[in-house]
Amino acid sequence: MYPPPEQGKPTYNQPPAAATGIPVSYSSTTSAYSGASSDYAPPPPPKPLVEWSTGLCDCCSASSDPRKSCITFWCPCITFGQVAEIIDKGSTSCGASGALYTLICCVIGCPCLYSCFYRSKMRQQYGLKGNDCTDCLIHCCCEACALCQEYRELENRGFNMVIGWHGNVEQRTRGIAMATTTTAPAVEQGMSR
Rank of each mutant, 00 (worst) to 15 (best):
K89R: 12
P111C: 06
A84Q: 00
C110H: 01
K121V: 00
Y126C: 01
P76F: 11
C70P: 06
L128G: 00
L103Q: 06
A99V: 10
F117N: 09
T79G: 05
K121M: 13
I71K: 11
A84N: 04
V107N: 05
D88S: 12
G90A: 05
Y118L: 03
C77F: 10
F73K: 14
Q82F: 09
Y114H: 14
F80D: 02
A96N: 07
G109Q: 09
F80S: 04
P111K: 06
S93D: 01
Y101S: 06
R119Y: 01
C110I: 01
P76C: 11
V83R: 05
Q82G: 02
G109D: 08
L113G: 15
T79Y: 04
Y114P: 10
P76D: 12
L103N: 04
F80Y: 13
T92K: 11
G130L: 00
A96V: 07
V83E: 03
D88E: 09
G95I: 07
K129W: 05
C77V: 01
Q82I: 05
E85H: 00
G95D: 05
P111M: 01
C112A: 11
L103C: 13
N131A: 03
I86G: 08
C75M: 12
N131K: 05
C105T: 14
V107D: 07
Y126G: 01
Y101H: 09
S120L: 10
G127N: 12
Q125V: 13
Q124H: 10
C133L: 15
S120G: 15
A84G: 02
L113D: 07
T72V: 11
L113M: 13
G130M: 09
P111A: 01
W74H: 14
G90K: 06
I104R: 08
F117P: 00
P76N: 08
Y126M: 06
Y118H: 04
G81F: 06
T102W: 14
L103R: 00
V83F: 04
C110P: 05
T79Q: 00
R123L: 04
C94F: 12
C106Y: 08
M122L: 15
K121Y: 03
C112K: 01
G95E: 08
G130D: 05
C133A: 14
P111L: 02
S120P: 03
L100R: 11
Y126T: 03
T102A: 13
C133Q: 08
C112Q: 11
T92N: 09
C133H: 06
F117R: 15
E85Y: 07
